[in-house]
Design a protein around this nucleic acid. Structure first.
Lengths: 324, 324
DNA sequence: TTGTAGGCGTTATCAT
DNA sequence: ATGATAACGCCTACAA
């Protein structure tokens, strides 16, 4: 690998001059510039980002912590995030926490080691300690670590409300809510919205908590079996909804005639599944875009006018609910 | 951020000594060691990996190029890869090529800039030029860039054979193959195996090529409509298979009674879909593990006994095919 | 407009 | 067993 010295030698100038043309900084004669550019071309010189980062104390790397990747929601979000970071000339180091705190702690160390410029956390962390005094800009998605640390998330409260309104207004009386893990702030907001709206119709619901990563089919079947009177089911992910529909089918219930089902996320498969899933759509594109843009601002030490941002959700009606 | 100098000062020793205890290298008195360790603890010192990398000319970063992430196959693979890299104390920089050559070329530059130690390419590259004289260890998944560049992939040929045998042996006569993009080596191997095995039964098939990322529903419906006599369909991905089943349902065909369908990949959703998908399972775990282990060997300049590795596939029979 | 030189944080060689 | 010091490749005062 050619270094800046090699280029300088070849172009018969000093390294400072080369550095100036690379960075387009300071005065440099057009002729010498051409000379340098030619040398760079010939030597196929690529500046060493490590040396640069060492000097500047920033790496143009953004660390992303995800709980896991094998869920469409996170995979899609990750793709969007990567696309935006590239626009700002950043690159992402992906760390998969597997919902494991020890791993997460390890990653924070790694991020420090690499002088990572900023962190995007999609993890379901409840701990804040390690991040608090880290001195690296952070933005969280789907979770509020503290009032100080900026966040973006869907309007989960409204998501719950929309689902409740749909179920209630189409005549459901015995309603179930198959939730994600209840400690999660997103899950709590959805539950709250769902119940508030249900209450307006004089309705309540029975709940059951599941894992997001791989919701247990047995638990779902069990819960469905124990509530044979159910006529409306709200699920905290499309994956859970798909499982639910399978269980319902197993019990010879028809969807949406006997039971209506609403999912959450609007993953790509929601419209391929059969029956096509009615679901609360999260606007991943806006979320990802906002996360990156905000983090970049944070890195540039721009003041944020608003620390916490909510992105609208929408009810997408397909084949697992009835028309009003 | 505390540096090695700060630690040295606090422990009243030289930076050389601190470096020795950090790296567990060379002689150092137990007492001074404790002194240094205490200073590190107090200062919350974390070694700067950038400076380290600059000196050592290796970054402990592995670059991963994926065509896109919103396909279960790649997402799962990525997760597995990340898990293994961590075991070897490497971290991954993920680059999403979006099947765009310009982007890929840019990434290669980025990889050079960061002194990336090795590259895993899952991309559908046909070009080899940029990688050839890169002087960074590379391993490709699902694609053979050249005889020299090591690769891992599923035994796609056998995958095709297994599918053909299943369809033929259960009496299918009018067979379709909904493939991925035909330039891909994986697609070619599957086609070859499929046709070879079909030929043994005196059978042939009609083919149609689709994108992997988001196979066009309209094209699929069209092809299905044009071949109403079809009684067996082999699809190059589970996603395509799911679409096919939807189209079949739309045409009032029942699966597997009228038409049998076989997918490829065995993504998690294959067993959640309804009907549950019969599919050719790729062993992502073994592929990911092998890729990382091989790359680590390559980085350590270990001679490989075998440059190209194939991983077995298996037919998973579920509800979209009939029993033999 | 260009060059010199010091420093970013680390490791490794050579003395001591 | 420990300490100076040069180097890794780059950037930026400062000097010329």
């Amino acid at each position: 690998m050619a270094t800046i010295k090699d280029v300088a030698k070849k172009a018969h100038v000093s390294v400072a001059t080369v550095s100036r043309v690379i960075n387009n900084k300071g005065y440099v004669n057009d002729e010498t510039k051409t000379l340098v550019l030619n040398a760079i071309e010939e030597l196929q010189y690529v500046p060493n980002e490590l040396a640069r980062s060492l000097f500047k104390k920033q790496s143009r790397i953004i660390g992303v912590i995800v709980p896991h990747m094998t869920s469409y929601y996170f995979a899609e979000l990750l793709e969007i995030i990567e696309n935006y970071t590239i626009e700002y000339d950043y690159h992402i180091m992906v760390c998969n926490s597997q919902d494991d705190e020890a791993r997460e702690t390890k990653f924070i160390r790694v991020f420090q080691q690499y002088s990572i410029d900023g962190i995007i956390i999609i993890a379901n962390t409840t701990r804040i300690g390690d991040y608090q005094n880290l001195n690296i800009p952070i933005i969280t998605i789907d979770h509020k670590l503290s009032d100080q640390i900026p966040s973006v998330s869907s309007n989960n409260l409204n998501g719950g409300k929309l689902a409740a309104e749909k179920l209630a207004s189409t005549g459901c009386k015995n309603i179930l809510h198959l939730r994600g893990p209840s400690p999660l702030i997103t899950v709590q907001a959805r539950s709250k919205g769902f119940e508030q709206q249900l209450a307006k119709h004089g309705l309540a619901c029975r709940r059951f908590d599941l894992e997001f990563k791989s919701p247990s089919k047995d638990y779902i079947q069990n819960f469905i079996d124990k509530n044979p009177d159910a006529d409306g089911i709200f699920c905290d992910s499309d994956l859970i909804a798909m499982h639910v529909i399978q269980c319902l089918k197993h019990n010879n219930k028809s969807v949406p005639e006997d039971v209506q089902v609403i999912g959450f996320d609007n993953i790509e498969l929601a419209s391929i599944f059969s029956p096509k899933l009615t679901t609360i759509a999260q606007d991943k594109h806006t979320i990802g875009k906002y996360a990156v843009e905000t983090l970049v601002k944070l890195i540039a030490k721009t003041e944020l006018t608003q620390k916490h941002h909510q992105v609208d959700v929408a009810l997408i009606e397909r084949e697992t609910t009835r028309a009003n």
